[in-house]
Simulated scan of single mutants.
Amino acid sequence: MNGLSPLFVCLGLLFSAMTDANDIEDAKYFSIMGLQSTPDDPSNAFQRDPDAIDLGRKLFFDRGMSASKEIACSTCHFTNNQYIANESIPAGSPRAFRSVMQITGVAYNRFFFWDGRADSLWAQALGPIQNPGEHNLDRLSAVQYVVRNYAAELNKISSTSAKYEGYLKRVKNWNESSNDDPPTTSINFLFSLMGKSLAAFQTSLPVQPSLWDNVARAKIKGTPLDKAQEKIWKGFRIFTGKARCSSCHDGPLFTDFSFHNTAMPTRPELGIEAGRYEVLPQIKSNEFGCYSLYSDASKDECRHLKYVNQSIDENFGSFKTPTLRNVRTKTHFGHASQFSSLQQMIDHYDTAPVGVHGRMLNTRTLSELKPIGLSSSEKESLLEFLKAL
């Protein structure tokens, strides 16, 4: 009997159909089409306020809001007319050599900074303002600057809240009087409003489609891929398959928003870093956290804090999974800029070194990595995919 039997032909067609269906579902899940609507932050009542968004946009680009009059949020987070990390300014010791994180899709995060010490975007936004290595402003000076330069914007925002209207009035009155005792509570609330406005602006920014999204869209529509797109798709299959990258870099933003120990090399200047574990003791009592006086959330709405994982073996040496969107634009990789190329990062994850944290807890390793054994061609394909994000 010549040829394959009808049963084998049917099974082959069925397998092919199942593979195509899986490809389509994966393309949807990992592309911008799988991105859900922006979640609400209950601790920020001004998240969707158009006036707060407008003030946040202005503050984001205002270099005057720094001691040197040369630093704005955009200095590190806006490059070549795009909201991508600017890494031309190396991080100095005040920033502990931290590489600049992307703000792409930042609205979907629940914890911020590499160690997750801030549990809201508005709390994170206030950190650089007071950091000596960044904006270098004390809280009072920052509030006075905004009250002086953005009076109309603050009036609009506070007009929707009797509480904030009262805080703004008290600060204005103090500015115009000779009273030496500043209204600390009012200043702190206005400072938090600055952070909430910056957060409102950043969460309003859409996630822009990439080359990868074009490939995913073609796959979903059944459009044949060209040669360059086939390379990207092949890299995607390695990313989600053999390389196991999607175990942490999951979904349309390519992050699980969690924290992992991946045996990143230590820097002599920093020693052995405790990472996530170091910030856990105070995370529920942060001055500008979800549980704080300045939060707009009820205690029941702070579940991400109530159920935070405090296990030492899962948090010691762990750092945040960054989004891989726009990763092609980066020149510093790892939480402390340990690597200078994507190729070096791929090699690190491929070889899976043991790391230094396990020995401190009398165990071999705390790293979640396992050797992969990628071939040179597989690494090249994976690199093509990452460059398309």
Rank of each mutant, 00 (worst) to 15 (best):
L305M: 08
G3N: 11
R359V: 03
M101Y: 03
P94E: 01
A151F: 11
T331E: 01
F339T: 05
L14M: 14
D115W: 01
C290L: 11
G12L: 10
G355T: 07
A125G: 10
H332C: 11
S377K: 04
T365M: 03
S298Q: 12
H332R: 10
S204I: 00
P39Y: 01
A274R: 09
A336R: 14
K379V: 01
T75C: 05
A263K: 06
G222W: 00
I157D: 05
A91F: 01
K284Q: 13
P50C: 01
A297W: 00
G251N: 02
Q82I: 08
S192V: 01
K58S: 15
G195C: 08
Y349T: 03
N362A: 12
S161M: 10
P268K: 06
A118Y: 07
F259P: 09
F239V: 04
L190K: 01
F189I: 01
R303G: 12
S318N: 00
G64K: 00
K163T: 06
L211I: 06
D181R: 15
L361Q: 08
A21D: 04
L270S: 01
F30R: 07
N2S: 12
S120L: 04
Q36S: 15
F254Y: 06
K169Y: 06
A91V: 12
M1R: 12
S295D: 02
T79I: 11
E165S: 15
G289C: 11
K299A: 10
T329V: 04
A142S: 06
T365G: 04
R325A: 04
A125N: 13
G3H: 08
A52T: 09
P182R: 06
A123H: 06
A125M: 14
A152Y: 15
L342G: 14
T266H: 03
D300P: 02
S178D: 11
G133P: 09
N44T: 03
I32K: 04
M33H: 08
E301W: 08
A352H: 03
E153V: 13
E70W: 00
K169V: 09
I283G: 12
Y83W: 15
P224Q: 06
H304M: 02
S141G: 08
M360I: 05
